[in-house]
Write a protein that binds this DNA or RNA. Structure first.
Lengths: 334, 334
DNA sequence: GCCGGTCGTCGAAGCGCTTCGACACTCTCA
DNA sequence: TGAGAGTGTCGAAGCGCTTCGACGACCGGC
C-alpha cells in the first residue's frame, strides 16, 4: 500500500517498541503482553508491513520456500500431475511456505542449486521413476525431501503415494464380485512401463496377483493414447479373448478412446463390457457412461507430502512409506 | 558436496583475495584480472560454493525469482497451460531466475504478499480474464509484470499472446481456399465465454469477421467437453445446417470427442467434413486423422513473456502488446 | 522485608552478500 | 619526468531480519 518497502525498524518506531519486540510478536517465540502485541499489530497493518523474505531467510536460516520438482515427462498425464502440484501449493501455504517450481530441463543440477543456495528449505519430488537419477542426490542433501511415488530402492527416503497395487487388486475384486470371469487391464503407454515408472508397474502387479487370488482369467496390456492405437489394441484383445467381459483402464488419456472404441465395436457398457477406471473422479464422472472408478486422491497425496516434509523440517521422525488406501466408487459402467 | 554451507568469505580466503573480489568475479560488475578470476573460480568449484540466495537478495535488492501466477480455473485446458508454465520456467532459467508458483486459492493476497516481501522481482500472470481482479493490483505494484493473455482494459499493462483473432480468421481462410461454403466454429465450453476469457472470445470474433470477408455462411458455438455433449452439439448442428462441410475446433479437450462423434455420425474426415483445430501440435498430430491445425506456440509465448518481464526489470521500455502470428500446418483433415 | 523466579522488553551481534569509495599500481602523453 | 587516466583490488558499511543475553518489574514464599 504505502510508498516504498516498510522495514521492521519503521514498525518498531511507529509502535514505540524495539525492533526485537516486533520480531517476537511476529514469530511468537517469546511472550509479549497483549497490549504491546496489539500496538505492534496495529502499526504493522497501518504501515502495510511485509517482512523482507531475503532478510528473514538470512537471519533465520529458513527461506519458507519448498521446491516442487516436476519433470513433466512424456506419457505422464499432465492434468493429474497438476492436481498434485496444485494441492502441494495449497498445503504449503497452510504451513506458511511458498513453492518454487523446478522442471526437468536443468536435471539434478537445479535441485542441487536451489538446495545449496538455501533458496528452499525442503523438496517435494513428483513423477518418480523406479531408477530415478534424482534419488542419489537426495540422500546427500541436508534438506529434507519427500517423494510422490516410489523408486525401486526407497530405503532411507520418505515416499507417499496411492497404493496402486491395492488399487489394481480392488478393481479385480469388484469385477469378480460382479461375476466376471475373464478380464483385462489396459494400462499406461508402453514407454511408461519401459521406463519402469512405479505406479504403472505396481498396478499391474496388483492386478495380476488378484487375478490369481480370485481364480480369474485375464491379461494386462499397455495402451497407447491415440484413438487408433487404443482401438486396435481393444479389437485384437476381443478377438483373442471372446469371453472377455470386464476391463480395467488405468490411463486417463486413453479412457475416452477406449469408450469410443467399444461403441464402435458394438460393445455396450456395462451390458456387454464392464469398465472400471483408475483415474481422478472428474474424469470418471464426465465419461459416458460415468465410470466406476478407483479415484486417485491427488489432493490427499499432495497434502500428505507437504505434511511429511514439514514434519521432517521440524525434526520429527516420519514413516518411510505412506500408502493411501484406494477407494472404489461404483458408477454406471459396471 | 562439502560439509556445511560454504560462504563467500571461505572462498575468498581459499583464493587469497578479498570477499569483494569474489563478488565481482561472480557479478562481472568490475574488471578482474584473468589470473585472479581463475583462482577464484577454481576455489569456488573446489569448495562447492553456492551464493546464499537470501543474503544476495538482501544486499542486492533482487531475489532472482519471478512469480508465475496460474489460477487453474474450470474449463481451462491444463496441458496447454502447463506448456506455457514449463516454457516460462525454462526461459526464466536462461536469465538466471527461478520461478515461484502461485495458484488461485490465495487470490490477489498472494500476489501482494510475494511482491511486498521481495520474494519475487517480477510476475508473469496466466489465464487472464477480460475483467481480471488481479489487474488493478498489478497497476499499483512496484514490481514489473507481464500478462499472458489480454484483459478488457490492457492500457498500461504488458500483454503477450497468440493473435487468436488472426487464428480464427486463418482457419476460415484455409477452409475458404479449399472451397467450403458453410462452416462452423466449435469453441470453448460456454462457461469460458461467460467468464469473458479473452482468447475464446477473440477467436470467435476473428472467425465471424472472416466469414464475412470471404462471403461464407457459418456459425460459432460453444462446445462442452464430454463426449455426449459434444455429440449432441454436433448432431444438432448437422441437422440445422445440412450444407455444412467445414469445422473449426478450438477446444483441446473436445477435439477427440468431435472426431469420435463424426465417426459415429458417419461423416468421414476430410471427405465429408474438413476439420481444422486450434491446438498444440502434438494434439493435432496424435488425432486420427492428424489434424490441420493452427498451433498454439506455447514455448514461444512463455519465452516472450519472460523476455519482456526481464526487459522491464532492466528498466527498458517494452511494447504494451505483443501478438504472435498464428501458423497453420496442413495435415490430413482438410 | 528479602530472595529467587518468571515475564516482558531492549540492545547488539551477527547472518552472507553487494557496493561504494579508496588506493596502489601501471601506462600514456605532454 | 610528472600529471592524469585507467586497472585491479581491498576494506568497510550496510541490506532487514532473528536471536541471545541482559535487565528491570513484579510475583509469591519464607
Amino acid at each position: 500500500m504505502s510508498g516504498r518497502t516498510v522495514t521492521i525498524a519503521q514498525v518498531a518506531k511507529h509502535a514505540g517498541v524495539a525492533v526485537s519486540t516486533v520480531s517476537y510478536v511476529l514469530s511468537g517465540k517469546r511472550t509479549i503482553s497483549a497490549d504491546t502485541r496489539r500496538r505492534v499489530l496495529d502499526s504493522i497493518s497501518a504501515l502495510g508491513y511485509h517482512p523482507h523474505a531475503g532478510a528473514r531467510a538470512l537471519a533465520s536460516k529458513r527461506s519458507n520456500v519448498i521446491a516442487l520438482v516436476l519433470p513433466l515427462r512424456a506419457g505422464m498425464h499432465v492434468p493429474v500431475l497438476m492436481r498434485f502440484a496444485s494441492s502441494v501449493v495449497t498445503a504449503a501455504r497452510r504451513f506458511d511456505h511458498d513453492v518454487l517450481l523446478l522442471t526437468a530441463d536443468e536435471g539434478t543440477e537445479g535441485i542441487l542449486r536451489v538446495a545449496a543456495s538455501a533458496l528452499v528449505d525442503a523438496l517435494v519430488l513428483m513423477d518418480v521413476e523406479l531408477d530415478d537419477r534424482r534419488v542419489p542426490l537426495l540422500r546427500e542433501l541436508a534438506e529434507p525431501s519427500v517423494l510422490i511415488g516410489f523408486p525401486a530402492e526407497p530405503a532411507g527416503l520418505t515416499c507417499v503415494d496411492l497404493d496402486f497395487a491395492a488399487a489394481g487388486a480392488r478393481c479385480v475384486e469388484h469385477l469378480a464380485e460382479r461375476g466376471h470371469e475373464e478380464i483385462a487391464l489396459l494400462g499406461a503407454p508402453s514407454v511408461v512401463y519401459d521406463r519402469g515408472t512405479g505406479f504403472a508397474t505396481r498396478t499391474r502387479e496388483g492386478f495380476v496377483a488378484a487375478l490369481d487370488d480370485h481364480g480369474l482369467k485375464g491379461v494386462a496390456l499397455p495402451c497407447e493414447e491415440t484413438f487408433d492405437e487404443a482401438y486396435e489394441t481393444l479389437r485384437d484383445l476381443l478377438l483373442d479373448r471372446p469371453g472377455l467381459s470386464g476391463l480395467v483402464v488405468h490411463n486417463e488419456a486413453a479412457v475416452g478412446h477406449v469408450l469410443a472404441a467399444l461403441r464402435q465395436l458394438d460393445r455396450r457398457v456395462p451390458h456387454d463390457m464392464a469398465v472400471v477406471a483408475i483415474c481422478p473422479d472428474d474424469v470418471a464422472e464426465r465419461a459416458s457412461p460415468p465410470l466406476t472408478s478407483v479415484l486417485i486422491p491427488a489432493e490427499e497425496v499432495g497434502r500428505e507430502a507437504v505434511r511429511l516434509v514439514m514434519d521432517k523440517l521440524e525434526g520429527r521422525t516420519v514413516p518411510d512409506s505412506t500408502l493411501l488406501t484406494p477407494l472404489l466408487a461404483v458408477r454406471a459402467s459396471t
